[in-house]
């Protein structure tokens, strides 16, 4: 057991899976020699060689397209895209190829690829370096979308992603890359994709969140002094609605928290499914505490944009008071 940051937990997961399975290869801009833009792959090229930790040209579409080919041929590529905003140039390859390959070939070809992408705000970066685009990829059938909220989950979820037979977009909240530490077992373990975590149990209200916002939710729950259940979705697609349904059926109230803009964010889907599945249990309309329907602002307004503990607490109290 070691006390690790998110960066170290991901690094460890990559090392362990690469040692175990020589089909796992990493590729991306400066991932080798430089250890990646956030130093997540530090030391891996030295350890596994330039054939397995490949410095690519600066070409996201090329990186993802090539990874799809590698995966179709039987390898397990792990491309890194430096910031979520740079998924844009690779969008075509992800949504036109990776997501559709299994269906299009009636199962003859699959794309076991894990795309690692730092995501979200909170590091004083401008737009395209602070966005939360998980809903875009959740909406595309054929992609799995994962976002851990801490080092322990990150390691277990990443190992599951690396072993998954289908394409996974693994969003790493860059705000908590080094901000928190957790006990992370040296031993191998997995956390299944598609399974949410009940962070803390409660009876009065359910908060559903994922990624770095989970930390703000915990602070808000502590501050409000009520019995609130917190669910970390961990995987956004496939979504574990069973856990959410069981919780909201019990509490009758729900607040959904995410960094991404509000309209058509993943919260819209969660709220709709709660309405469909828990309608008769609901004591109040489902509330959302989210980013705003505007471009992610530069750093002076960043903290106004991101849901903070105070804003989440207000959402919880409003929902409880309804």
């Amino acid at each position: 057991m070691a006390n690790l940051t998110l960066v170290q937990a991901i690094n460890l997961a990559l090392i362990q899976e690469m040692e175990k399975d020589d089909r796992v290869i990493l590729l991306g801009e400066d991932v080798g020699n430089n250890g990646g833009v956030f130093r997540v792959t530090e030391g891996l090229q030295k350890r596994f060689g330039a054939n397995r930790v490949v410095d690519t040209p600066l070409a996201e579409s090329g990186i993802i397209g090539t990874s799809i080919g590698l995966a179709m041929a039987g390898l397990r590529p792990v491309p890194e895209i430096q910031f979520e905003g740079f998924l844009g140039p690779a969008y075509d390859q992800l949504c036109s190829h990776a997501a559709r390959m299994r269906t299009r070939t009636r199962g003859a070809f699959t794309v076991p690829m894990t795309v690692r992408v730092p995501v979200g705000g909170g590091i004083h970066a401008p737009e395209l370096h602070s966005d939360s685009p998980e809903a875009f990829y959740t909406h595309q059938p054929g992609l799995k979308v994962v976002m851990p909220s801490g080092p322990y989950d990150a390691k277990g979820l990443l190992i599951s992603a690396l072993r998954d037979p289908d394409p996974v977009i693994f969003f790493e909240p860059k705000r908590i890359y080094r901000a928190i530490r957790e006990e992370v077992p040296e031993d191998e373990y997995t956390i299944p994709i598609g399974k949410a975590r009940v962070v803390c149990e409660g009876t009065d209200l359910t908060v559903v969140s994922w990624g770095a916002s989970v930390i703000q939710c915990m602070q808000a729950i502590e501050a409000c002094g009520r019995s609130v259940e917190l669910i970390d979705l961990r995987t956004i697609y496939p979504m574990d609605m069973e856990t959410v349904e069981a919780s909201v059926s019990k509490t009758g109230r729900c607040v959904i928290v995410h960094e991404a803009p509000r309209t058509c964010g993943v919260g819209s889907e969660v709220a709709t499914q709660i309405m469909e599945k828990c309608f008769l249990h609901l004591e109040a309309p489902v509330q959302r505490v989210t980013g705003f329907d505007t471009i992610m602002p530069y750093y002076k307004l960043e903290l106004e944009y991101l849901p903070d503990a105070a804003r989440i607490q207000r959402g919880i109290e409003d929902c409880l008071a309804y």
Partner: peptide, 26 residues
Amino acid sequence: EPPMSELYHDVFVEPHGPFNGTSLPQ
């Protein structure tokens, strides 16, 4: 420093913005 209202300025041309954003009340 830019005021909070700047979040909603210049997203769309003004007659269609800045206060039609669905999450403004929040």
